[in-house]
Amino acid sequence: MIELDLHKKLFGADGLIQLQIKITIQTNELVTLYGPSGAGKTSIIRMIAGLMKPDKGSILVDGDTWFDSQQKMHLRTQERPIGLVFQEYSLFPNMTVYENLRFALPKGDTEEMIEELLETIGLKNLRDTKPNLLSGGQKQRVAVARALVRKPSILLLDEPLSSLDTAMRNKLQDDILAFHKRFRLTTILVSHDYHEVKKMSDRVLLVENGRIVAEGKVDDIL
């Protein structure tokens, strides 16, 4: 279970917004943060990942404190068992597909996991290819697989599919749903695509101007 209580001043395109949210996300739930750009969705993901420090509040995951402004506690990104997928792929250009995945492997783990993931995303034949030769969809599949190599308990997806065409988008949505179930992940997805949100989410959190203005099943609130 993830308990978030986040306060942060954000400087966006429309000036200053005060992000203020308090939510609980259940284990194995797939939650979508839905809303217009500049509402603070990406910032929420970055705060959970430890890449951005909230001004005030706390982040509790299964009872462990990841952040607490009162206790001056801030767990570094490296110490948080998360998988993070960015919109812009962020594959390491100096490494092949296989090396990108192996880089993520924790010390002492066997490489079986990598083989298994490559098989699942159907990129076994491209294992020795550098990222610059892959299509957008292939890149993002590698990025999702890479995020899962260290067996995180939480998967954070920051608009990972927004630059892909519809067919590739559908395929990757299915892949992500399959991974979500198979690895018993708690997944938080940022999206502003209605169909994607409808297809993927157990629950939607509608984010506007740094606040959660509605939450529930897709059909109930959108």
Binding site: Q78, L91, F92
Partner: peptide, 15 residues
Amino acid sequence: VPFSLVEASFSLGKS
């Protein structure tokens, strides 16, 4: 070097 690569590495648990 894009900073997102650095962040990706941190998110993979690397120092």
